[in-house]
């Protein structure tokens, strides 16, 4: 019995680590610029397709290390330009928060169907990042899951390092904490917004690559991710990175254990029940600052 619980615990950890990577990216944009990105799921698919193009279509040498090395700048530029092109112009308007949701929803529709036109409706598969299973007595962990866990956590740590130790990162934090103050001290707000969008695109894109090699890529595959990331960020507190981290692992565990005890069909109900209960008690989520 104890082994079964360990098994489920590992499952929760794996799910949680991926959720964490996704949710941190989403919460970051909201925290810094209050923009809610509906196309987040499509950016996830974009990561997967980029990996597919490099690994399978082109057959690039160098494996996933090469894919990551090429995908990161690509995603960064894509995110940056997207923000500049369609979100920045809206910011001057009074009802821009709704408009951002709408425009990113339009972008999601465009991108998802663009994927379908370009790559076809069928799923694409990628070679696993690592094969084999580690067996410890009764418990086993696949090397694939371990890589996902390790890379997700390193992604988040790298992101933390950027926030704390680089000029851009510090500027991002400054804007998040006090947009007007940041402006006064001469931080170029618009550039920071775009850079934040770029960083968050990288986070979700990496998540897309990591998961594509286990769960595959398909044109409409991003919606699930959007909804889950959304629930996690709201649960953890929108804009709070630490809150998102805790929330991701808590909900990962919840998903694994509810699936184990009650069945998979209850997972979604349970997620929303927990979310609603949390928001009823704490409207700003676990650690949110902006209520």
């Amino acid at each position: 019995m104890i082994y079964e619980y360990l098994d489920i615990f590992i499952s929760g950890l794996t799910i949680g680590s991926v959720y964490a990577l996704m949710a941190v990216g989403l919460t970051l944009i909201y925290g810094v610029s209050r923009a809610f990105n509906f196309a987040y799921g499509s950016f996830y698919s974009l990561g997967g397709y980029i990996a597919w193009i490099f690994m399978v279509a082109i057959g690039l040498r160098g494996g996933y290390a090469m894919v990551f090395a090429l995908a990161v700048p690509l995603l960064m530029v894509f995110g940056y330009l997207t923000e500049k092109a369609i979100i920045a112009p809206l910011r001057r308007r009074s009802d821009w928060e709704v408009k951002v949701m709408m425009i990113t929803l339009g972008l999601a529709l465009f991108m998802d169907n663009g994927f379908q036109v370009l790559f076809g409706p069928r799923m694409k598969s990628l070679p696993p990042i690592m094969e084999g299973v580690i067996v410890l007595g009764e418990v086993y962990i696949t090397k694939q899951d371990m890589m996902i866990f390790v890379l997700s956590i390193s992604g988040i740590l790298a992101f933390r390092w950027i926030l704390n130790n680089t000029r851009t990162g510090m500027a991002v934090r400054a804007v998040a904490q006090n947009p007007n103050g940041a402006k006064i001290v001469g931080i170029p707000k618009d550039k920071i917004f775009a850079a934040t969008f770029g960083i968050s695109t990288v986070m979700v894109g990496i998540g897309g690559i990591l998961l594509a090699q286990k769960y595959f890529v398909s044109p409409m595959g991003g919606w699930d991710i959007l909804v889950k990331s959304w629930v996690i960020t709201a649960f953890g507190g929108m804009g709070s990175i630490r809150g998102s981290l805790y929330a991701a692992f808590l909900l990962g565990m919840l998903e694994a254990f509810v699936g184990y005890w009650f069945g998979m069909s209850w997972v979604l109900f349970a997620l929303f029940a927990v979310l609603l209960a949390t928001l009823a008690i704490r409207p700003q989520g676990l650690m949110g600052k902006w209520g």
Partner: peptide, 28 residues
């Protein structure tokens, strides 16, 4: 009742959650 005390994106989420949960509920 619970949701109108929330702000912006939170309301969007909770109301959208109703949308998301409705399908599994109707099928259950």
């Amino acid at each position: 009742l619970p949701c109108l005390r929330l702000k912006g994106a939170y309301i969007a989420l909770v109301t959208f959650a109703v949308h998301m949960i409705l399908e599994p509920f109707l099928k259950s």
